[in-house]
Simulated assay, not measured.
Amino acid sequence: MPPTQEVACENDDCFLDMFENHYTYDVPEDYGIDELACPVCQGTDLRAIEL
């Protein structure tokens, strides 16, 4: 099963507190949260949520 990652937006001005990122089977090994942006505010101050 492809990985799923929960991500929190740390921007205080953004109303989105978290989102899920669903990857495909062919996601590169070195791809991570640093390449993502918040889908609402486009900010890059993101934190991975560990369950």
Rank of each mutant, 00 (worst) to 15 (best):
Q5E: 02
A48T: 11
Q5M: 05
P39M: 06
P28T: 09
Q42R: 15
E10P: 01
G43K: 10
L36H: 03
C9W: 01
M18R: 11
R47Y: 09
E20K: 13
C38I: 10
Q5F: 01
Q42I: 05
C41K: 08
R47E: 15
E35T: 10
C9L: 02
L51E: 12
V40L: 04
P28F: 08
Q42M: 13
P2M: 01
D30E: 14
D13Q: 04
Y23G: 04
D30C: 09
P39F: 04
E35H: 13
T44Q: 15
T24G: 14
C41N: 07
D34W: 03
L16P: 06
Y23R: 03
D17L: 11
V27S: 10
P39L: 06
V40D: 05
G32E: 05
P39W: 03
Q42V: 06
P39T: 02
N21E: 15
F15H: 08
P39Y: 04
D13C: 02
E10Y: 01
C38Q: 09
E35R: 14
P28D: 14
G43C: 08
N21I: 15
D13G: 05
Y31N: 06
E35D: 15
L51A: 13
P28H: 11
E10W: 00
V7W: 00
D30T: 15
H22C: 07
P2I: 01
E29S: 06
C38R: 08
R47D: 12
I33H: 07
C9S: 01
T4E: 05
Q5I: 00
V7Y: 00
D26W: 06
R47H: 14
L51D: 11
D45I: 01
N21A: 14
G32T: 07
E20I: 08
F19A: 06
M1C: 03
T44W: 05
P3I: 06
A8G: 00
D13Y: 05
I49P: 06
D34A: 09
H22G: 07
H22Q: 14
Y25I: 00
D30Q: 12
F15D: 10
A48F: 03
E20F: 12
Y25C: 07
A48P: 03
L36V: 06
F19S: 04
A8P: 00
P2F: 00
Y31F: 14
V27C: 13
E35I: 02
R47I: 05
P39G: 10
E50D: 12
L46S: 09
G43H: 07
D26H: 07
T44L: 11
I33P: 08
M1S: 10
E6R: 13
E10V: 02
E35N: 14
C9Y: 01
T44S: 15
T24Q: 11
D30F: 09
A48G: 10
G43R: 06
M18Q: 12
A8T: 00
Q5H: 00
Y25N: 09
L16T: 10
H22L: 09
T44V: 15
Q5W: 01
M1I: 02
Y31I: 02
E20G: 12
C38E: 08
L36F: 02
C14S: 02
I49V: 15
T44R: 15
D17A: 09
N11E: 04
P2Q: 01
L46K: 07
T44F: 10
C9N: 03
P28G: 11
M1K: 03
Y25Q: 11
A8Q: 02
C38M: 10
C38H: 06
Y23W: 12
M1N: 04
C38N: 08
P28E: 14
L46N: 09
D12R: 11
A48S: 12
L46I: 07
